[in-house]
């Protein structure tokens, strides 16, 4: 059975590129437009990995991360950050909040799939 990934980004073009890449590799993809939307969807679907942006309206990626890590079902699910932010301070915040990895945009499809393949198992 195909694994499901929740892709969170407020940019429609990024969501489409992520979805295209992941579906091409055989993953099921659920899209969310911001942290709040992702949190709602994560509560209604069982997902195997979350790939989220940081800077988003309503709820940012770090807040989403913090909230998800408090839920039993998302304690050990890999959560990758895909963002334009590359500063050490922000990365440290992400790590402290429980991120599994940090990917800086723009992403390369092959590299993204490699990283996901490593952590999703």
């Amino acid at each position: 059975m195909a694994k499901t990934i929740l892709a969170v980004d407020d940019s429609a073009s990024i969501r489409q590129m992520v979805t295209f890449t992941l579906k091409g590799a055989g993953y099921e993809v659920i899209e969310a437009v911001d942290g709040q939307d992702a949190f709602d969807k994560a509560n209604h679907h069982q997902v195997n990995l979350i790939l989220t942006d940081i800077n988003m309206p309503r709820m940012d990626g770090l807040k989403l991360l913090e909230l998800l890590r408090k839920l039993t079902q998302y304690k050990n699910i890999p959560i990758l950050i895909l963002t334009t932010e590359s500063g050490d301070e922000m990365k440290a915040k992400g790590r402290a909040a429980g991120a599994t990895g940090w990917l800086v945009k723009p992403f390369d499809p092959k590299r993204l799939l490699e990283v996901i393949g490593k952590v999703i198992s």
């Binding site: 980004d9 073009s13 590129m17 334009t84 945009k105």
Partner: peptide, 12 residues
């Protein structure tokens, strides 16, 4: 695949 990377310029 290269286009996927390039198209992200819009978000940046």
């Amino acid at each position: 695949e290269a286009v996927i990377t390039s198209l992200q310029f819009g978000d940046l």
